[in-house]
Design a protein around this nucleic acid. Structure first.
Length: 521
RNA sequence: GGGCCCGUAGCUCAGUUGGAUAGAGCAACGGAUUUCUAAUCCGUAGGUCGGAGGUUCGAUUCCUCUCGGGCCCGCCA
């Protein structure tokens, strides 16, 4: 909002200076308040390209900015050392922007850069052979928040869960269930978890259905709902697996060896070729996955995003290679790799073994610490980093726990607004109020943070980084609590408007994270 | 042996795609409550950004090497 104002001023100044070349520069919030509100590296970035001295270029740009009327909204423009240009925003511009937050309300922070493009986001896609584990929980939350982010950025998003409802592991599962019912030992390579005894159903289809419904129930506890569950069997039924293989054959990307059909992935950078159709005539998981992506592409999405666990990272290269070999636009396929979660109880890691079936299930975690805390902690770190998740910390209803820090901020705001309402001051001025009295540092700081919200959403969406939103939320809560200490709100209409704008922003933060925004705590 | 990811304060993590004196929270220490929710706030202390080179005006960020940790390398899915 403020940045785009500066950007257009800069563009005007550039053309006034007769600079036609496209320069790659940035406008960023200043790292320290002595450097103003925003800074640009334009002169440094442009100096080399224009073979000019950066300081001189900065001086010229600053001059053109002033001539171009920048001083209506900028109180000071300053050039510093290597060639940074620092901007000090006039309070009036900031103050005028706040009522817009209240007008936009639910829409505040939402943008249109996605232009309605269709995206298919596939995530979780756990095998229907057992309960979801905490790793699935992490992908589920990350996926759900990314879907919300992309929608907020103006994309049309559909979410999908791929169900491997046929194949070897289904046979193993069925054998394991039958063995358990007959009180016989778990078959070799079977499933030995305690849950096997609980599985209901009298056919393969029934037990898959049962386990899937348990998985869905767990996801629902987290508030994660999918637009579609896509069964692998459908690909076979529709002949798409054959279709995928024959596409590769047609493009001369296969060889036959030892009775099997192989994808020549080696010539596309893979360490070895991969089997598509086994010697016994059955297709592999890989072939079905190709068919699945063929199907996705045929549905006309602009972009396909998959979230996979790190245990599948090795398949990225070969899937992309195969997609390309089928003649499909591999550059539209994006795969996010999520690292695993290690559970802790205090300082003690909780050991888990799939083999012995000693697992803490996702459902147990959610039951123990609640959906809000689970969602927050799974959203709060870069999915590309391993996550140490401390159940004791997540359970604490105290300041140690950032979830409550944000929620408390919201509740505190609501309490103020309730009080104002009951005292007849009105909880909101619907953006009509004159905010020129808001000039104190704590007020300025809060306003600046509020106005940074749309950009945070946009960046989080582009980067597919939900943790950007939790970071923003923590920062906003900090400046709000700071403001609260410094500034008495009741009896001050301008501050009431600011508080209402804070309420909307904080609520939208929590909404994007899928976390409840309590009105009292 | 090969591939991908991670390594930042005692702990858990950010770091705006290469910018200015590297930031939060917790833990530690010291303060604040007749005032709109103290689930809060203020202050102090805490760092060779795993290590070594390189690229350039400038590197936590990019490249090479190296050390440590995680995950993977099936005609399983």
């Amino acid at each position: 909002m403020l940045q785009s104002t500066i950007e257009s001023l800069l563009e005007k100044a550039l053309s006034a200076a007769g600079i036609q070349i496209q320069l790659d520069y940035k406008i960023t919030p200043s790292p320290r308040k002595e450097f103003g509100d925003f800074a640009t590296n334009l002169a440094i970035a442009g100096a080399k390209k224009l073979s000019r001295n950066p300081m001189e270029l900065a001086a010229e740009i600053a001059e053109k900015l002033k001539m171009g009327g920048a001083e209506e909204v900028i109180s000071k423009i300053e050039i510093v050392k290597p060639g940074f240009i620092n901007f000090f925003i006039k309070d009036e511009l900031t103050q005028k922007s706040i009522p817009e937050i209240i007008r936009q309300d639910q829409r505040w922070g939402h943008g249109s850069s996605g232009k309605g493009q269709r995206i298919l986001l596939e995530y979780v896609s756990a095998n229907p052979t057992g309960p979801l584990h905490v790793g699935h929980g992490r992908w589920a939350v990350i996926g759900d928040v990314i879907a919300r982010l992309l929608k907020a950025a103006g994309f049309k998003v559909e979410t999908e869960f791929y169900v491997n409802n046929i194949g070897n592991q289904v046979e193993k599962l069925w054998e394991s269930v039958q063995a358990a019912r007959a009180r016989k030992p778990t078959p070799a390579n079977g499933y030995g978890g305690a849950y096997i005894k609980e599985v209901k159903g009298d056919s393969k289809e029934d037990i898959i259905e049962y386990i899937l419904s348990e998985q869905k129930a767990t996801l629902a506890k987290l508030g994660v709902l999918f637009d579609r569950f896509f069964n692998e069997s459908e690909l076979h039924a529709k002949g798409e697996v054959k279709e995928a293989v024959s596409r590769l054959e047609k493009n001369h990307k296969t060889i036959i060896e030892a009775g099997a059909i192989w994808f020549k992935s080696q010539e596309m950078g893979d360490d070895k070729n991969r089997v598509l159709v086994r010697a016994d005539g059955n297709s592999t998981y890989f072939a079905a996955d190709l068919a699945y992506h063929l199907d996705k592409f045929s549905r006309g999405y602009e972009r396909l995003i998959n979230i996979w666990g790190t245990d599948h990272h090795g398949y990225v290269k070969r899937l992309k290679a195969a997609v390309e070999a089928m003649g499909l636009p591999a550059d539209r396929l994006e795969i996010i790799i999520g690292q695993l979660v290690t559970l802790y109880r205090g300082n003690e890691p909780i050991r888990m073994s799939k083999r012995t079936g000693e697992m803490v299930s996702l459902a147990e975690v959610i039951d123990e610490i609640g959906s809000d805390a689970t969602r927050f902690f799974f959203s709060a770190t870069d999915v590309n980093s391993h996550l140490d998740f401390d159940l004791e910390l997540a359970k604490k209803k105290s300041m140690d726990n950032p979830v409550y820090y944000l929620q408390y901020g919201h509740a505190r705001i609501c309490s103020i607004l309730r009080k104002a309402e009951s005292e007849g001051q009105g909880s909101s001025t619907k953006g009509q109020e004159d905010l020129s009295s808001l000039t104190e540092p704590a007020e300025r700081e809060l306003m600046m943070r509020l106005l940074a919200w749309p950009r945070s959403v946009e960046e989080a969406a582009v980067l597919r980084h939900p943790h950007r939103i939790t970071e923003y939320g923590k920062e906003l809560a900090i400046v709000f609590h700071h403001f609260y200490e410094k500034c008495r709100v009741l009896g001050n209409p301008a501050r009431l408007t600011l508080v209402d704008a804070s309420r909307i922003t904080l609520r939208n933060v929590l909404e994007l994270l899928g976390i409840t925004a309590p009105e009292s705590m």
